[in-house]
Design a protein around this nucleic acid. Structure first.
Lengths: 247, 247
DNA sequence: AGCTTTCGTTACGAGACTTCACATTTGTGT
DNA sequence: ACACAAATGTGAAGTCTCGTAACGAAAGCT
């Protein structure tokens, strides 16, 4: 039975399992260090925290950058999963509700772990080539893909076809048709545009809040402000009828 | 004549001038290093680049964090100055135009120097207490103050009194009255809210773009998208009449 | 000139990264 | 059960950086 593993490595083969567990522990410890001690992740600290010596870590990651890459990949995966889960829990036909769910989930992800959020969406480190790999691929890609796939239902229904602002120039039409990240299946230009307005609005709020630039606003007021921000984005994406100017 | 300097240190006293020049050179070099080599600013590199030895820098900054603090302070000052200048060049009564000017200036600042932008608005470094000092004060403060002061004219005219979304809860009203950063003079709650929606929208776009998360969109399309983003924010702030749903 | 302050250098110790050789554990085949 | 091989961890070593300290040189002041 067990010998069937020799054929193709389907069965994780005990040794691989413990190795995988170690890798998980390394990543978890590294993330904790990242949260506590900031961006200057010390390889020696991770080892010490795990009751090991520093050189042992090189059996698992040849480079510090490689570890960071792994953390980024995990982060993007988890964020995208979280977004997808939040959207799956919402009504498929309720565009406004789905927008809210996505926005809330995005914000929560950033709030829950600013260090990881920064790792994913912060400044790409020059000389750290892996970032651009991730930004072009998993980063905005995974996020956009999660958003797009989760909103696909309403997109296909044409609910999102009329964003509030449609005065985009000629470059956008061709752009929307051609240069979308690979993960994002082709969607109508208007919906594509609306998605990006949404992303900008949510991302901006999430960044400001997670990086402590709104700390002078009370939690309650911040929540209310975010609610208003969501309504604004719902409006921008055409999920609500433009309300009459309440005067 | 010159002895009058002894009274109060009005005259910069040659020695102070050359010291100030050195400090400027240090900061300029540090920023260059920050741009080229990423966030891990090496003290030795700065010195070497300036034809000095590392310990000499400790005559000017007792700590690496102190140097970073100085860079942050400068960055905020320059950003706020840039915003103010852009807004001074716009028509005082043209709210939409002023919003556009502010947005464009904000975006340009981020684009022109992502490293500095990240320094100002990135993740606050734990164990680097100066950040919170700056974020509570100069950071969002300076930016908000520049925005607010520059928009004050139109605010006072009541042009900004009716943002698109006004469904904020009870916490906001009290918040807006009390907890504004010290730099921001008291403004109507609605205008305050509109300002923050604006900030979130522009900041989000600027972050995404500056940190390379929109690199899969062509420059032209990005410009057009940003134009649309501006229009959206103008709408959100009540600078345009809600256009009829163009169907 | 002579003194004081400032500036910069060399010398130094602590700590981190990374490589290397060596020991130890672990799983496997006989 | 024994032995072999691979994987894993350790200690030592070299290079790097930070930050301190002691020392020398230059500039300005009286």
């Amino acid at each position: 039975m067990r010998s069937s593993a020799a054929e193709s490595d389907r069965v994780p083969s005990r040794r691989e399992r413990v190795r995988a567990a170690t890798i998980e522990e390394i990543k978890a410890t590294a993330m904790r260090m990242l949260r506590e001690h900031g961006a200057d992740l010390r390889f020696a600290d991770i080892a010490r925290e795990m009751g090991m010596t520093a050189p042992a870590l090189y059996r698992y990651y040849t480079d510090r950058d490689e570890l960071l890459s792994a953390l980024m990949a995990d982060g993007f995966a988890e964020m995208s999963a979280q977004l997808t889960a939040a959207l799956d829990a919402a009504e498929p036909d309720d565009l406004a509700g789905r927008i809210r769910a996505a926005a809330v989930s995005y914000r929560e992800f950033a709030q829950a772990d600013p260090a990881r959020f920064s790792l994913l969406f912060g400044l790409p480190n020059p000389g750290f080539g892996s970032h651009s790999q991730h930004t072009s691929g998993p980063a905005a890609g995974a996020t956009m893909a999660a958003l797009e796939q989760s909103l696909r239902g309403v997109i296909d229904q044409g609910q999102i076809a009329h964003p509030l602002i449609r005065h985009v120039g000629p470059g956008w039409a061709t752009e929307a048709g051609t240069a979308q990240p690979a993960d994002v299946a082709r969607i109508p230009a208007d919906a594509y545009q609306a998605l990006l307005h949404f992303l900008a609005g949510v991302h901006g709020f999430a960044c400001l809040e997670a990086f402590d630039h709104l700390n002078w606003i009370s939690v309650q007021a911040r929540d209310e402000l975010f609610d208003a921000q969501i309504e604004l984005l719902q409006l921008a994406m055409g999920a609500r009828p433009p309300q009459p100017a309440a005067d």
